[in-house]
Every structure is written in C-alpha cells, then in structure tokens.
Design a protein around this nucleic acid. Sequence first.
DNA 1: GAATGATATTGACGAACGTCGATACGTGAC
DNA 2: GTCACGTATCGACGTTCGTCAATATCATTC
Lengths: 116, 116
Amino acid sequence: MTVLPVLPSAAAACCSPVTAGVLDDDQAEALARTFKALGDPNRVKLLSIIAASEGREACVCDLTEPVGLSQPTVSHHMKLLVEAGLVAREQRGRWAYFSIVPGALDSLAGALAPRP
Amino acid sequence: MTVLPVLPSAAAACCSPVTAGVLDDDQAEALARTFKALGDPNRVKLLSIIAASEGREACVCDLTEPVGLSQPTVSHHMKLLVEAGLVAREQRGRWAYFSIVPGALDSLAGALAPRP
DNA sequence: GAATGATATTGACGAACGTCGATACGTGAC
DNA sequence: GTCACGTATCGACGTTCGTCAATATCATTC
C-alpha cells in the first residue's frame, strides 16, 4: 500500500491559539497530545538532528548513536513523533527516512503565539 | 520573603531553536521540560482560561469549576505551570492570582519556528 | 488570641511513560 | 529460494504522572 498518511491531530492544533479564548476539550486534547510528543528531551533532540541533517531527513541508523539509545527505543520515539504529525516516515529501499513535516512546527508555534 | 522568582528554565529555551542545529543535552532538556508542562490537556485549558480572563489573571477558585478537577489537583497543575516559567503566581490578600508570564509563550514559539 | 476561608502539601492509588533485550517483519542481494 | 541487514513490535521492568481525600499552611476577620 501507499505511504501512511500523516495523522491530522497536530494539524488540527494549528488554528486554536491558547491565548485567544477558552479552549474546548477537543482543542486542549489535541494541543496537549502534540506537546506531549515534545515533552521528552530525546525526542526534542531527535527532531533537531533530523532538521540539521543533510536534506533534512535521517534514518534510524543515523539517530541511534547521537542520542545514545537502543535501536528499539529510537524507533519507538520516532513512532510517537510520526503519530503526533511532527515527522513523516518514508521507506526507501531498506531504510526508513524521517523528515520534519513542513509547517507542523510553525502551526504549533502559531498556537502558542498567534501572529497578528 | 519576596515573590518567588520565575525559574529560568523556560526563558532559557527562548534561544535554542529546534531547527537551527543539533541541540545539546541541556537545551533539549530545558525545552522538553517546558513542553512537558504543556503536555496535559487540563494544563493547556487552564492556560487558556487565564488568558481569557478579565485582566488576564485568575485565582484557583476561578479555575476549579471549568476544568472539573478538585482544588488540590488544580493547585498541583498550577505549580507545574509556574515551575515551567509559563505562569506567574502573585498572592493578593487571601487569593493567589495566576497570570501568564509575558513573552513565555512567544519564546517557546520562537524555539519551534524561529522568525527570520 | 480564635475562627474562617483560600490555597498548598501530603500520602496513596492506578495509569501511562521510557527503556531495554528478544524477536518478528520487510527489503535487497545472492 | 536463503541470507544479511535495517527497522518495527513485543514483553517486561522501574519510574513518572494525574488524581483524589485528608490535612496543613497562610492571610483575614472577629
């Protein structure tokens, strides 16, 4: 089958700014889910490593050593980042390449500090 | 003694953008700690309630009912938000007023999506 | 001082999380 | 087909988290 689609949970967070009125339960839930994905130092670091990599993508083999975690653990963290809509996974040959979803971080930033 | 000072953990996060190079352990830790504070739907909602309140501040008594949690639980969440540097606490008379730290959310947004 | 009201802390509980080793799954090479 | 390699899943473990009832702390009023 095709490439698995990005879950819309994070994308939905793009338009409910924290400071623009009381959030309803769904909005708060969606935002918290995305923030929770960023609530682990290793995941934040993984994100920065991907962003700093050549072509802004990296495979698990590139990520294991910098964070000092086992391969299953890195795979687990990447799954969470993908499910949060922050990272996209693409299988090319034997390797799985991860890249930052364009606009995902910007949308989240917009939910924190809406631009006028 | 005086008003407890805002912990610099969140403020320190203002200048280490996720996408501008590999973060070191301290930067990743500081960012993740702040995001973790936002990783609970009730805390996100509490933040939005404060932002939407008159004068952009609220006491625990105003916060308990909207989130449907007990007073100790709300107090616990507020403590986490204060420790994360996102919210300031000010004692006025019998009441403790909470307000969003100016610039805290903007700094965090800047760490997610740096403005050029 | 004692009493009242608002908030914080404590102690406990189940649930979720981060981590790993072992193992299963895909993919390309032979 | 079989083999080797990269990645994902599974099962388990200790730790952290979210929640509450009970209690303690602090500020005001009497």
